[in-house]
């Protein structure tokens, strides 16, 4: 009885207990960012660094503020390419992992080819993809996909292979079919391992999308970056870098949050 009461009490307080450290953490993060910004601004002024090398942060932000539409459009375009490539990479990677677990013959046949494909530098691969798909959004997504699917494949297979065989035996004794085993036991059990690859894939897919844009396009953060390089607009280049950093960090944070929400049981077992 008292245990039950304590439980409900804990559940009620859980919201606040969770919110307080989160707010504290957010405060520290903002403080850290503010200090970094101040150091940047101050160093440029104090050492009289020429803007060709490192423009002031305020100048970069002013550049973005002057023509925000271009940056917003570029941000959204690159985000879309990244997300499509990432999503495709995750789906294909997880399916590959399941397929390789079920059919070791296919694993032995295809896995070495996958490994070889990953040793091709992404730049060389990018040129090929543009030849095949033209200057389309799809071409960029394909490069993002190419960088994502392999780690997801490897980690899914690893996660599925390390499911406790005693747990499999137990569910089999209850009469579980292969499909039930996969959905109710193996995939959830492999989730922590899969998320390791998803976090990696979040950064890699952004790299893929930006590199893809270098082969020609009209919008995107990669395009802004390349054009600024050719026209020696250092401040614009820095603005594009800031936007890319924001995109990469945001995406990584989103994946990490999803992980904390889905894999709530943590490192147990």
């Amino acid at each position: 009885m008292s245990a039950a009461l304590a439980l409900t009490a804990r559940r009620g307080a859980a919201g606040w207990r969770w919110a307080a450290p989160a707010l504290l953490w957010l405060g520290r993060l903002i403080l850290g960012l503010a200090i970094a910004a101040a150091v940047w601004e101050g160093a440029v002024l104090a050492f009289a660094i020429r803007p060709e090398y490192l423009p002031r942060l305020s100048a970069i932000l002013a550049t973005i503020a002057a023509t925000p539409e271009a940056y917003v459009a570029g941000f959204l375009r690159t985000l879309l390419e990244t997300l499509i490539g990432f999503a495709a990479g995750v789906v294909v990677g997880v399916l590959n992992g399941i397929l390789f677990l079920r059919a070791p013959v296919l694993r032995d046949m295809l896995f070495p080819i996958f490994v070889v494909s990953q040793t091709i530098p992404v730049i060389a691969f990018g040129a090929l993809v543009v030849l095949w798909f033209g200057n389309t959004l799809l071409a960029k997504a394909v490069i993002a996909f190419y960088l994502t699917f392999f780690p997801v494949t490897v980690n899914t297979l690893l996660g599925l292979q390390s499911v406790d065989p005693r747990q499999i035996a137990l569910l089999r004794s209850f009469g579980a079919s292969g499909r039930q085993l996969l959905l109710r036991l193996m995939l959830p059990a492999a989730l922590p391992q899969i998320f390791v690859a998803l976090r990696l894939g979040a950064s890699l897919s952004l790299v893929g999308a930006i590199v893809g844009e270098w082969f020609g396009d009209t919008t995107g953060l990669g395009v802004i970056l390349l054009q600024a390089m050719y026209t020696e607009q250092v401040t614009v280049m820095w603005a594009a870098i800031l936007c890319a950093a924001l995109l990469g960090t945001g995406f990584y944070a989103a994946v990490s949050l999803a992980e904390r929400w889905l894999v709530f049981w943590g490192a147990e077992q």
């Binding site: 005693r166 089999r172 004794s173 036991l185 709530f264 147990e268």
Partner: peptide
């Protein structure tokens, strides 16, 4: 006999999720 006897192994083998 799969699915016809109820089996409890040594470890509890509860699913953590």
């Amino acid at each position: 006999l799969l699915g016809r006897v109820s089996f409890m192994p040594q470890r509890d083998l509860l699913l953590p999720w």
